[in-house]
């Protein structure tokens, strides 16, 4: 079974101080100096792929990211963890934040170039764009089913997976035959293992396959044609409340203040 994992590393937005959430004239937030982390849903997807590989030796694992050269650092980790092939598609100067259609087009063209995959495995949404569209768009372009909010995967045979996923009716498990797009949601398997130093030194040095738009028969100019929404404005969300600091010499004193000033009343009202 040929599995292609699509992933993204993204700036750790949680550590950007509140005053920095100011867009520039191009409606961008300066995040280049923030450390990169795996997108949490993509990380689950990558970890699930490695888990599948443990269950069946007949699985080949590829990973694709659309990212500038810095994205290759993550690929060294993936090689060290046992991925067979890592591909970086250079986005040039394209703003990918709100362009899931373009990203899906790139992914599908790559799939065609690589003569198809049985399973596309990716996280459900990114932090910046929060578009939640890429998995569905890939499935539609490739004319294959899409299972969303995947929480667990197991290998049944060469072409079949047992897929657990969340839906409105509850948690569901079903057997799915490839080809399929799987969009990973809140999965309990959420962290990639840490590769050994030895694996990093050996496997981690495998070369990353690099592609440009031209390799997929596209040009940077065509990116805009794929998008249906135009970004008009970006404003910080204000969450401020009139905060009061509660202090005390001992935990008892603090607890007493919290209880008498906030909690007792709420408990009485709740009765």
């Amino acid at each position: 079974m040929k599995i292609l994992c699509l992933f993204k590393t993204e700036p750790d937005l949680d550590i950007l101080p509140e005053k920095e959430w100011q867009p520039d004239e191009n409606l961008r937030i300066e995040t280049v100096f923030l450390p990169s982390i795996w997108n949490c849903f993509d990380e689950s997807a990558l970890a699930m792929a490695l888990q599948l590989r443990k269950e069946s030796k007949d699985i080949s694992l590829s990973a694709l990211t659309v990212a500038p050269p810095a994205g290759e650092t993550a690929m060294r980790t993936l090689y060290a963890l046992g991925f067979d092939n890592c591909v970086r598609l250079d986005p040039g100067g394209t703003d990918l934040r709100f362009s899931p259609e373009w990203v899906a087009e790139l992914i599908c063209r790559y799939c065609e170039k690589a003569e198809g995959f049985d399973v596309l495995l990716l996280g459900q949404q990114s932090a910046e764009g929060n578009n939640s569209l890429t998995p569905a768009l890939c499935a539609e372009k490739l004319h294959v089913p899409c299972i969303s909010r995947v929480t667990e995967l197991h290998c049944e045979d060469e072409q079949t997976l047992s897929v657990s996923y969340a839906c409105n009716q509850g948690l569901t498990r079903r057997r799915i035959s490839a080809p399929v797009v799987l969009s990973v949601g809140n999965a309990q398997i959420s962290c990639l293992p840490v590769p050994t130093l030895k694996a990093k030194m050996t496997l981690g040095k495998k070369p990353v396959e690099r592609l440009a738009y031209g390799d997929l028969g596209l040009t940077e100019d065509s990116a805009g044609e794929y998008t249906g929404l135009g970004l008009m404005d970006l404003e910080p969300v204000s969450l401020k409340r009139a905060t009061r600091r509660i202090t005390g010499a001992t935990p008892e004193e603090i607890a007493e203040k919290l209880y008498t000033e906030y909690i007792r009343k709420a408990l009485e009202e709740g009765q």
């Binding site: 937005l13 949680d14 950007l16 959430w21 867009p23 937030i29 934040r97 709100f98 932090a127 910046e128 764009g129 929060n130 998008t227 249906g228 929404l229 135009g230 970004l231 008009m232 404005d233 970006l234 404003e235 910080p236 969300v237």
Partner: peptide, 23 residues
């Protein structure tokens, strides 16, 4: 048609123009 939604992990609210229909 203009649509608003939270982006950037809910730090920001974006306003979009639906440039194409159906939306």
């Amino acid at each position: 048609l203009f649509l608003r939604k939270r982006v950037y992990s809910h730090h920001m609210e974006a306003r979009f123009l639906a440039e194409k229909l159906p939306c």
